[in-house]
Amino acid sequence: MICRGAEHCCHRSYGSLCEVGEGDCNEDVDCAGSLVCGTNNCLKYHAVGGFWDESDDCCQPKCSIENPCVEGEGHCSGHNTCQQGLLCGASCIDTAYFSKKLFPAQVGFYNSTDKCCYRPCNEHYNRCGLNEEHCLNDEDCLDGYFCDKDANGRRFCADVNECDRDGKYYCGRNAVCENTIGSFNCNCTAGFSNFQAYEGCSDINECATDPCDGNECINFEGGFQCLCSEPNFKSCNSGKGCCDVDECELWRTRVSESNPCPDRSLPGCWNKKGSYRCADEVMFFNGGFLQRKTGDVIIWHFTDRMYLPVHDYYWGVEDAKVACREKGYTKANRTLNSYYGYRMTKYRMYHVKCSGSEANLFKCGVGQFNVLKTTANTAGVQCYN
């Protein structure tokens, strides 16, 4: 220790610069490095006695609990030696925190081991995001955030609810402002699209896409209404669509006892959109439609009120010829395993045994009628002349 309390022992001109706790000093320049000369503070470091008394001034760190430093000052020894909102720890010559433009005196006054007080959130070099602490003003936070303070005085960057401010005006009519972290979105309400800033969303003409399946469509702002053509269509989807009325299904399930196809020469009822078809007792199913040339063989069942398939057990070319002859064709190929997609587990005919000369399938031998099976194996034909 150079000085132990002698009056003005610390003196720059004499080359006796004092360290922490040494005194007596008169000016900051009497202290080494970044230390400063305190006031009546030596008894913090020493007991009364010798040259020490309560009026002695000792060198001390510039930053202390009693005299916390401002931004860019050091050497600090802890966060509590910096003013509120600042932290201790950045190198005093780190230009990432202390630019030469804002802190021109840093270089030359401090060395690389000196720690200075710095702002974790600073509009000039490190703007903070959500819940990051130690901002001093809104500019210290990223766009979309503001500097908030809780009941304990803690300052932090919080999300700006733009929808409570200008967002609702920016979104305009027929749009809902949705706040997000650091920003916001404008979402068009149902029935509207094509958002334009400050104007909002425009009406969608839903009728342009024929949502009513060929029925009358009435467009209005924010929605539309289908006027369905009864009795072939009925309103569905809360008035936003027209659903086909399956007259054949109503007859099959006995919801209606009005037979759509009372003519026994065309007993088969087959539904199609907006209507139905009355077809022959024996028809061919192909791709969802009834045909007379190619497809899986199906036969109308009067009691079940529906078409049931013919099983392909021992189904041969002679059997296929008979099925095709009924439709006016002289030649045929057979298909198996529900080749055209008609799959059921109840069969109108099982094990058909034709010689090839019969007028129709009912003239052939049949192992069983109206039989249940666990697999779908429908017989089919490809008719030609």
Rank of each mutant, 00 (worst) to 15 (best):
L308K: 02
G23C: 10
C217P: 08
T330D: 09
V36W: 00
M349G: 01
H311A: 12
R252W: 01
E281H: 11
H79F: 07
P309M: 05
C248D: 01
D280L: 14
T294K: 13
P260T: 09
N219M: 07
G191K: 14
R165T: 11
G316C: 02
E281L: 09
C82Y: 03
F224M: 09
T345H: 13
G223V: 05
C92D: 03
C10H: 05
G5I: 14
G380T: 07
T113E: 14
Q106L: 00
Y125P: 00
D312P: 01
V352K: 00
E19V: 05
E54S: 15
C226I: 09
N67A: 12
D166G: 13
E66Q: 13
L308Y: 01
C135I: 10
L290H: 06
D203N: 15
C383S: 10
N333V: 01
K240R: 15
G356E: 07
R254W: 00
T113A: 13
V20L: 12
S77L: 14
A6T: 13
N385W: 04
L102N: 13
T345S: 13
W315N: 02
Y145N: 08
M349C: 04
E281V: 11
L372Y: 15
K100G: 02
Y347N: 08
K331N: 11
N187I: 14
A279T: 08
K62L: 08
E123K: 15
S183T: 12
D28R: 06
H124Y: 15
G222W: 00
N152Y: 05
Q291V: 06
V297A: 04
D263F: 03
V48I: 13
Y170E: 15
F224A: 05
D263Y: 02
C121Y: 03
Y276I: 08
G380M: 04
L136A: 15
H134W: 08
E326T: 00
V48G: 08
V297R: 00
G341Y: 03
T378L: 02
S229M: 12
P104W: 02
G365I: 02
F192P: 09
E19I: 02
S16C: 04
F289A: 15
C243M: 08
Y314S: 15
C261R: 09
N219V: 07
Q368M: 12
V282F: 02
E326R: 07
H79V: 10
S183F: 03
E27L: 12
C117P: 01
V371E: 12
Y45H: 15
C248Q: 01
N179H: 06
G241Q: 10
T209M: 09
H301K: 02
T335C: 06
T253A: 06
D304M: 08
R173H: 12
S357Q: 14
G15S: 09
P104E: 03
F156R: 11
D148P: 01
T375V: 14
N271G: 11
N80D: 14
S258E: 13
A197H: 11
P262D: 08
C157D: 06
C59D: 04
G108P: 04
L361M: 11
E19T: 11
F369K: 14
D280P: 01
V245K: 04
G85Q: 04
C236S: 15
Q225G: 05
E139A: 15
G200Q: 12
N286T: 04
